[in-house]
């Protein structure tokens, strides 16, 4: 079951980690579920490195301001992205830290989840290429923004069939971690 809350989500990381793609897949899945979504991003001129942020608004009504100023949900997949965006999180929000990234933030629910390490463990070649799909699973495991059917459809829309199929185990692993994750407070 997907929920009908309004979400302001920011996914951040280093250029090349695929946070924009993860945001696109999430927003697309929300549309498949019949909800409304916007997806935007801010990145530098570099194609690798730098701090990239991708944002998603999910709502049942119209979305006017298309960006996310103070995210209720913030994912940080690199130390630099936590330094840059950690303070933007809305009070009472949810912060998700990948592995040993950052120390967490006061006044929010902190989760530390080994997103990239899980990807490396699952990938036969030890690659972190699908870490963004693990992250997508983690996010949906925590919040159930969108239905599983919508995620399936979104994965097939955004990847070639073969790649989408390869990505399932990464998504599922992320989803399980999200479901079972326990928050900590500072």
């Amino acid at each position: 079951m997907s929920s009908h809350e309004k979400y302001k989500i920011r996914l951040s990381g280093s250029g090349g980690q695929g946070v924009i793609k993860a945001a696109v897949m999430l927003a697309e899945a929300a549309l498949v579920d019949g909800r409304n979504a916007t997806q935007s991003q801010v990145y530098g001129p570099e194609s690798r490195g730098g701090a990239t942020r991708a944002e998603v608004n999910i709502s049942d009504g119209p979305i006017l301001f298309p960006k996310v100023e103070n995210p209720g949900i913030l994912l940080c997949m690199s130390p630099e992205s936590f330094e840059k965006f950690g303070a933007d999180i809305a009070p009472g929000g949810t912060l998700i830290l990948d592995g040993d990234v950052g120390e967490g933030t006061k006044g929010v629910k902190n989760y530390r989840i080994p997103i990239t390490d899980t990807c490396r463990d699952l990938d036969p070649k030890g690659s972190d290429l699908s870490a963004n799909v693990v992250a997508l699973g983690v996010l949906n495991g925590l919040f159930d923004f969108v239905s599983r059917d919508a995620i399936v459809e979104s994965l097939y829309r955004n990847f070639k069939k073969k790649v989408a199929e390869l990505n399932w185990k990464f998504y599922d692993a992320g989803y399980e971690m999200g479901k079972n994750a326990k928050p900590f407070e500072l």
Binding site: V24, A27, L31, N36, A37, T38, Q39, S40, Q41, I63, P66, K67
Partner: peptide, 9 residues
């Protein structure tokens, strides 16, 4: 750029 790069319904 905001609208050019914005993805939405």
């Amino acid at each position: 750029e905001e609208i050019g790069h914005l993805r939405e319904r």
